[in-house]
Simulated assay, not measured.
Amino acid sequence: MANTPQAKKRIRRNARRAEVNGARIGRIRTLVKKVEAALGAGDKSAATAALSAAQPELARGVAKGVLHKNTASRKLSRLTKRVSALG
């Protein structure tokens, strides 16, 4: 159990950050799923629109430290490749 005031504050702060970061990761996952759903339906215009919505959110996740830079880059690259492969 935390004894010092600093440790108690850290516990409070970590809980708040975990909540914010969890929401951010959930938003990223939702946007990626929208791209994948559009890909599954074969709708290129919807997939392109969903990808353009997911791209800045992935970048924001990297900037905020909830995603590793290479992870976001890999996800974006694979999604872009699949979207461009649609006829």
Results as ranks from 00 to 15, higher is better:
residue 84 S to R: 09
residue 31 L to T: 01
residue 40 G to E: 11
residue 83 V to A: 08
residue 6 Q to D: 09
residue 87 G to P: 15
residue 69 K to Q: 14
residue 36 E to W: 01
residue 79 L to Y: 01
residue 19 E to P: 05
residue 48 T to E: 11
residue 71 T to P: 00
residue 47 A to P: 11
residue 78 R to V: 04
residue 77 S to R: 07
residue 45 S to M: 12
residue 65 G to P: 13
residue 86 L to H: 09
residue 31 L to S: 05
residue 70 N to S: 15
residue 54 A to E: 04
residue 37 A to P: 00
residue 75 K to T: 14
residue 79 L to E: 03
residue 57 E to M: 15
residue 50 A to W: 01
residue 46 A to S: 05
residue 61 G to A: 10
residue 53 A to Q: 07
residue 4 T to C: 10
residue 58 L to T: 14
residue 32 V to H: 01
residue 35 V to L: 11
residue 72 A to H: 02
residue 67 L to C: 03
residue 1 M to D: 08
residue 27 R to C: 10
residue 81 K to F: 13
residue 13 R to A: 14
residue 33 K to F: 15
residue 18 A to F: 05
residue 61 G to T: 10
residue 81 K to T: 14
residue 41 A to T: 14
residue 80 T to L: 14
residue 17 R to S: 08
residue 80 T to W: 04
residue 55 Q to F: 06
residue 31 L to V: 04
residue 51 L to Y: 01
residue 70 N to T: 14
residue 14 N to Q: 11
residue 81 K to D: 10
residue 44 K to H: 03
residue 84 S to C: 02
residue 75 K to V: 15
residue 21 N to H: 12
residue 44 K to S: 08
residue 78 R to I: 06
residue 4 T to M: 03
residue 62 V to Q: 00
residue 16 R to I: 15
residue 38 A to G: 05
residue 38 A to M: 07
residue 72 A to K: 00
residue 4 T to F: 09
residue 13 R to G: 14
residue 26 G to V: 12
